[in-house]
């Protein structure tokens, strides 16, 4: 039994260092939000700077994950556990953001599928999935 506990000790130490890293006196406790902002801006950059439609959808996904992470970060209570009621536990994480994000993830994959279907359809119609080439084809058809 003790052996099993010892085997998990490095993992636990890693987790504790993560907690200290996120909330410790060295950082002002906002590091998680900054990572969220970086992720969000990366997704935003992919969406506006790339012409490939599949890449744009991947960028939207990155953006989406950053928003999810933002909600989950806000739900965290230090010293709390997962919101599954049990005896002898006083502090739980906030369950409400978890519910919202849980449904949002599944809806997100459904909308991603819809977007990819549109990409396939565009490819069938225009024979390309690059934004500028599609515009070129459109202008050609107009003249």
């Amino acid at each position: 039994m003790q052996g099993i506990v010892d085997a998990f000790a490095p993992l636990y130490a890693m987790w504790q260092s993560f907690e200290a890293f996120m909330a410790g006196p060295g950082s002002p406790g906002l590091l998680g939000y900054w990572i969220v902002v970086v992720l969000m801006m990366t997704g935003f950059y992919i969406v506006i700077a790339h012409d490939n439609l599949v890449k744009k959808i991947v960028g939207l996904n990155v953006f989406q994950v950053s928003v999810f992470l933002f909600y989950i970060l806000m739900a965290k209570v230090s010293g709390g556990t997962a919101p599954i009621l049990a005896d002898g536990i006083e502090k739980y994480a906030n369950p409400l953001p978890h519910v919202l994000i849980l449904t949002a993830i599944v809806v997100g994959v459904a909308t991603t599928a819809l977007g990819l279907a549109l990409v396939v359809r565009i490819r069938n119609a225009y024979d390309t999935i690059e934004d500028d080439e599609i515009q070129a084809v459109e202008e050609e058809e107009d003249t």
């Binding site: 987790w15 993560f18 994950v65 999810f68 992470l69 989950i72 970060l73 739900a75 965290k76 209570v77 709390g80 556990t81 997962a82 919101p83 599954i84 994480a93 953001p97 978890h98 994000i101 849980l102 993830i105």
Partner: peptide
């Protein structure tokens, strides 16, 4: 991201 959610106590998510 899923691993990060576990660390942040959101097991369902």
């Amino acid at each position: 991201a899923a691993a990060a959610y576990v660390v942040l106590d959101a097991v369902d998510v």
